[in-house]
C-alpha cells in the first residue's frame, strides 16, 4: 500500500505547488498509515529529486523515457498507471493544473478508481473516504464520498501550506512500456509566454477591469504587481476587448484563481467574475462606485478613483517594502 503523488517538473525544476502537493500527500499518508511515494517523468537531476524528501517522500520513482518527452494525456496516463500498480497506490494525488486535469480522469477510468477534482482540504475521513470540494463555481461546497478501492484527488494550488518533514528518500528508476499508439496527438509547435508568473500560481494578484478605460492605463497596474511580486489579471470584457492577453482573464469562464491577496481595480464584481476569484484569502476592491457589488465580497475597500488611488497606493507599498 502507498500514497502516490505525481510531481510534475518544469524544465527539470519543481515549483512551490509541488511541495504543497507532497505536504498534502504526506498528511494523508499519516492518516492512512502508509508510505508516501513521489513520481516524476522526465529529466530531473538527483539533487532536485532529493528535495522531495524534505516534504515526506520516502521514495521517488523516476521515469525517463524519450517517448514521454512530449506530453500526451494518453501516454502519461499509461506511465502513471503502471507506477500506481507497481506500488499498490491507494490514493493518487495530482495538482489541479493543466496536466493534472488531463491525466486524472483518464487514470480514474484505467484504475477503476473514484475521483474528486479540485479539492482544497484534507479528507475529513478516510473510511469512508470523504473530501470537500467547491461546486457551482465556488458558490457552494460539497462533501464527496469516494467509493472505490483507489482514490484520486487533484489539489488546487495555494490551498495547502508547505510542511517540512525530512525523510532520507531513495531514488528508483522505473521503466514503462509506451507504444506508438499511446502518442496519437502530437504537438506541432509550442509557444511559451515565458518569464511571466502563472496567474494560477501567484500568491498576490493585481486585477484590472473596464473601469481602467483602456490598455494604455495598465502601467500603474503592472507597477503595483512589480512592487508586490504579484501577477496581473483582468475581467472578461478587458480580455475580450484585447486590452490584455486572454491568459489573464479570470472568472467563471476564465481561469479560477485563489491567491492570498486579490486586488480588484475598476472591476464591478459581477457574479461570474467573483466565481473565479472567491477562493482568494483576502480581497481588496478599489472602485468609484460605492454600490459596486465587489464591496460585498471584499474584505477591504476604497471608494475612489483608480487614477488617483493606485499611484498613491503604489507609493505606499513601495515605502512599506523599503522599510521592511
Amino acid at each position: 500500500m502507498s500514497i502516490l503523488v505525481y510531481t510534475e517538473n518544469w524544465e527539470g525544476k519543481f515549483k512551490k505547488s509541488t511541495y504543497e502537493l507532497l505536504s498534502y500527500g504526506n498528511e494523508i499518508a499519516k492518516m492512512m498509515n502508509t508510505p508516501l511515494i513521489a513520481l516524476t517523468i522526465g529529466n530531473v537531476d538527483d539533487n532536485e529529486l532529493k528535495s522531495l524528501g524534505n516534504y515526506g517522500a520516502e521514495k521517488v520513482l523516476k521515469i525517463s523515457d524519450p517517448k514521454l518527452d512530449v506530453f500526451t494525456s494518453k501516454s502519461y496516463t499509461k506511465a502513471i498507471y503502471e507506477a500506481a500498480k507497481a506500488v499498490d497506490a491507494k490514493v493518487v494525488i495530482f495538482s489541479n493544473n493543466v496536466s493534472g486535469k488531463a491525466i486524472s480522469p483518464r487514470l480514474t477510468v484505467k484504475l477503476d478508481a473514484a475521483l474528486a477534482a479540485g479539492v482544497m482540504h484534507l479528507p475529513t475521513s478516510t473510511d469512508p473516504f470523504l473530501v470537500r470540494k467547491r461546486v457551482y463555481s465556488g458558490k457552494g461546497f460539497a462533501d464527496y464520498e469516494l467509493n472505490a478501492d483507489i482514490k484520486i484527488l487533484t489539489l488546487n494550488t495555494n490551498s495547502f501550506e508547505v510542511i517540512e518533514n525530512h525523510k532520507d528518500t531513495v531514488i528508483e528508476a522505473f521503466s514503462v512500456q509506451i507504444a506508438d499508439s499511446d502518442l496519437s496527438a502530437k504537438p506541432l509547435s509550442v509557444e511559451k509566454t515565458s518569464g511571466k508568473l502563472l496567474i494560477t500560481e501567484a500568491e498576490i494578484l493585481v486585477s484590472g477591469g473596464r473601469g481602467l478605460k483602456g490598455p494604455e492605463n495598465w502601467g500603474m497596474i503592472e507597477e503595483m504587481a512589480e512592487i508586490l511580486g504579484a501577477g496581473t489579471c483582468c475581467s472578461r470584457p478587458v480580455a475580450d476587448l484585447e486590452w490584455r492577453p486572454h491568459q489573464e482573464h479570470v472568472g467563471q469562464t476564465g481561469k479560477v484563481v485563489a491567491p492570498n491577496l486579490y486586488i480588484a481595480i475598476g472591476i464591478s464584481g459581477a457574479i461570474q467574475h467573483l466565481a473565479g476569484v472567491n477562493g482568494s484569502k483576502v480581497m481588496v476592491a478599489i472602485n468609484t462606485d460605492p454600490e459596486a457589488p465587489f464591496f460585498e465580497a471584499a474584505d477591504y475597500g476604497i471608494v475612489g478613483d483608480a487614477f488617483k488611488v493606485v499611484p498613491a497606493l503604489n507609493e505606499a507599498f513601495r515605502k512599506f517594502k523599503q522599510g521592511s
Binding site: 458558490k139 461546497f141 460539497a142 460585498e296 477591504y300 475597500g301 476604497i302
Partner: peptide, 26 residues
C-alpha cells in the same frame, strides 16, 4: 457511480467590508 455527494454547504458569510479613506491609502 463511484462518487456521491453526501452534503452541500454554502460558503461562510463574509464579514463586512472594511473601508479605507481614499486620501489615506497608507
Amino acid at each position: 457511480a463511484k462518487t456521491k455527494v453526501t452534503r452541500f454547504y454554502l460558503p461562510e458569510p463574509k464579514s463586512a467590508c472594511k473601508y479605507v479613506d481614499a486620501e489615506n491609502v497608507e
